[in-house]
């Protein structure tokens, strides 16, 4: 199963999923291909986080199937963890461990059964992850001491340490300064282009998403209402439908567009 450009990595078919007795996703078909950078966009409550969870395998769907074609059949949890990294930012509190120790955690799936400390190979990956996220100089500091932006980057390093082929992120740049938002997008973008890591991220900022993602998914009310390239999807009618506000889309040159909110919808 060698890397073709469009090799599917995570494949959702007819997935219905929810928590408790409710249902949040009502029949979603979605396939993440290798090398894609997909932005998942939608209003609150649309089921974006749920979608990520199902893709990551941490939430079992009530209907439909989730499959991982890029893994060998019968791959277990750890095998999946080695190749697919998911990060839920908000669950991580101010832990009093060093940055390096945190990123070491990212190598867990690669540890042999009784392995106690990271092996030299592990250390390589860790160093590389730290390097890529620009957090090498933070390595010996306590995670709890870091600023929001630094923490996000460290968590990203944690995800990268395992050298995954797929990266799933739930609002990775929420609450960050624009500078850090851009930094992280740049890192993700480089990963995506150079290492061909498939990235799927739930994003709030349509403009940034449009700038960096190769594909966008609009999610609303538990269904995918639109999917396609940013060029295709950044249209006033689609956006107004999605967010229920008026928007203006301004094209800047050939390939870029900017979305500006323009007040409430009439009626």
């Amino acid at each position: 199963m060698k890397a073709g450009e469009n090799l599917p990595t995570v494949d959702l078919a007819g997935v219905r999923a929810g928590y408790g007795s409710g249902e949040v996703l009502h029949g979603v078909d979605f396939c993440l291909a290798a090398g894609e950078f997909v932005g998942i966009i939608g209003p609150n409550g649309a089921g974006k986080s749920t979608l990520i969870r199902v893709m990551a395998g941490t939430l079992k769907p009530k209907g439909g199937t989730t499959s991982y074609p890029f893994l060998e059949t019968g791959a277990g949890r750890r095998e999946r963890a080695r190749n697919l990294a998911v990060l839920f930012q908000d669950q991580v509190g101010p832990l009093n461990i060093t940055v390096r120790e945190m990123v070491e955690l990212g190598r867990c799936p690669h540890f042999r059964p009784l392995q106690w400390r990271p092996s030299p190979r592990d250390r390589q990956s860790i160093d590389r992850a730290l390097d890529r996220t620009g957090t090498s100089d933070l390595a010996e500091r306590s995670f709890a001491d870091l600023s929001g932006g630094e923490r996000q980057r460290v968590l990203l390093a944690l995800a990268l340490a395992r050298e995954p082929r797929v990266l799933l992120l739930d609002e990775p740049v929420q609450n960050l300064d624009i500078r850090y938002q851009v930094e992280i997008f740049e890192i993700l973008s480089e990963l995506n282009r150079k290492q061909k890591v498939a990235v799927a991220a739930v994003l709030h900022d349509v403009n940034l998403a449009a700038q960096y993602c190769s594909r966008l998914i609009f999610l609303r009310g538990g269904r995918i209402v639109a999917a396609g390239s940013p060029r295709e999807l950044l249209r006033e009618d689609i956006l107004e439908d999605l967010f229920e506000i008026r928007v203006e889309v301004h094209r800047l040159g050939q390939s870029r567009a900017v979305v500006i909110p323009a007040g409430k919808l009439p009626g």
């Binding site: 941490t58 999946r80 839920f88 669950q91 867990c108």
Partner: peptide, 13 residues
């Protein structure tokens, strides 16, 4: 310590 879902993402049950 990273949260249950993150732990699951790391391959633990």
């Amino acid at each position: 310590a990273l949260g249950e879902e993150n732990a699951a993402g790391l391959g633990y049950d």
